[in-house]
Write a protein that binds this DNA or RNA. Structure first.
Lengths: 275, 275
DNA sequence: CAAAATACGTAACATACGATACAGCGCTCT
DNA sequence: AGAGCGCTGTATCGTATGTTACGTATTTTG
């Protein structure tokens, strides 16, 4: 069973003529980067001519050079998306077989935050904290609880926080209250929900600032969003995981709370006295 | 000090116009692969036009698109050659400055699962999967979204799953439907809610099997529970974190799904055909 | 050793790619 | 409410890229 192009090459390298073999060796030497460059660069690196490179990829079974490059990119994408397979991780095997779910989730968290800078988080927190209007939160079928979770916290530290629940027609009517000073937080992972997309589009038309929590493939709503948070969702389960988005949400809640410390503290005291 | 292009982007993403920001977001979402494709593919993925992509890379300081791609490739080459550096440093130099929240959450997850055996998880999954009656889920002020999240999944793979929402008087009346063949899943972290404790006690008297998600100090409900899951909640924030409980919930959802695979698969098909 | 076959590189070609000019649009600010 | 500015997309252009044909070199075989 041959899965990667590298294997394919080392499998056939024996049957290749000298020039193509040099091409193969230089590609393997720093795989797969040389293959992502242009034919001219590849040929220069290997010390052969361009046609030799093309014959080489043809021998591997590809119709043309772009097809070969696409295959390499796909392979690379698969590698980058599952860091677990790459890192041998001498730290954990002792703790071992605990739960593949846990391992995958830990990876997802690390990956998600790796693509998320402090700066970005601070910007979003600022958007949520300093909004001069109202905050609305909504989610999809499985992610709506995340919207609720966030709303439950935010509503304590600042006024005018609303979770949009129930039927589509209900939120649609709330659009009339929304304007450019307002913020809309949307959670949407695949399979992306049509109703949410429509809603986001209309909100955008009214000037609402949209903060989107989505997966790494980006919901179409990203088009309308001011801020996009892309969380990793792949786990060894029949379902996608929302854990990464959950943790980002908690992080944001914490950041917003810190920013509103002075104003928020008073509000919390007031709330306490109401009980 | 800005070393990677990803940092450069997240540094300037705030100052970018909407279109270029979309480009930046799609690139970050699955970095750096989109940047290695052609301008046309990049623009299609981001949902913007080609010139916007070019303006985007120009804003990052590159003279032209090929120069930008070369920079990405160099970066990738450095990463691939030293796989170790990838997990340790790239974004988080000291292993920590990114987000203390993340570090704390990762610790919480590991600690939580360390005290949770496979056996225990399997038992709880079995309880949920093989119950002959109904499943009820309920949570506290901040944890109710977790109950909803779990309910949203379970209800797809098995019948008679109910999330208890709204006012206390409403759930109390549902007690009448509960018996010893039923399972009640409760989420309760401090400050523990009186109403939930009362409810749990009454349910216990009726013979209901209780599965409790709580924090490491254990809600009083633990007295009545058949199964107790204690999650770590401490994070550097004004709020406690429910992330560990969230991940345990996801793990259980996955386990239950696997156990009901045959029966569940049919149910899922039936549901699909209803849409 | 000769002749054929295979491999390789040079050079010309066509395509598709990145770059640019321009016009329309929405947004902000006065 | 109007004028100005900045952003974005359409259409066009030049060029670098992949591709192919062909001639030369090299190896293989009788």
């Amino acid at each position: 069973m041959i899965s990667s192009i590298a294997e394919l090459i080392s499998d056939r390298i024996g049957t290749m003529p000298a020039g193509e073999r040099r091409a193969a060796q230089t590609l393997i030497a720093n795989y797969p980067l040389t293959g992502l460059k242009t034919v001219a660069e590849f040929s220069a690196a290997a010390g052969v001519s361009s046609p030799t490179i093309l014959r080489f990829v043809a021998r591997l079974g590809f119709q043309n050079y772009p097809e070969f490059q696409s295959a390499l990119q796909d392979e690379l994408a698969a590698q980058l998306q599952s860091p677990a397979s790459r890192t041998l991780d001498p730290a954990s095997p002792a703790g071992g077989a605990v739960s593949p779910m846990l391992e995958a989730t830990l990876d997802n968290l690390r990956e998600t935050f790796r693509h998320l800078s402090d700066r970005q988080l601070a910007d979003i927190a600022k958007t949520l904290a300093e909004r001069r209007g109202k905050t609305f939160l909504i989610g999809g079928r499985f992610t709506d609880p995340l919207a609720r979770y966030m709303a439950a916290h935010l509503t304590i530290i600042q006024p005018d926080v609303y979770h949009l629940a129930g039927q589509e027609s209900i939120w649609r009517d709330r659009l009339i209250d929304m304007g450019k000073r307002d913020v809309l937080v949307i959670f949407d992972i695949r399979r992306y929900q049509e109703s949410l997309i429509r809603f986001a589009e209309k909100a955008r038309q009214r000037g609402v600032q949209i903060v989107l929590f989505t997966d790494q493939w980006l919901s179409p709503i990203a088009r309308f969003a001011r801020h996009v948070i892309a969380g990793r969702t792949a786990v060894p389960s029949a379902w996608d995981s929302s854990a990464a988005l959950f943790v980002v949400a908690e992080t944001l809640i914490g950041a917003v709370t810190r920013q509103l410390e002075t104003a928020g503290a008073k509000r919390i005291r007031d709330l306490e006295s109401l009980r």
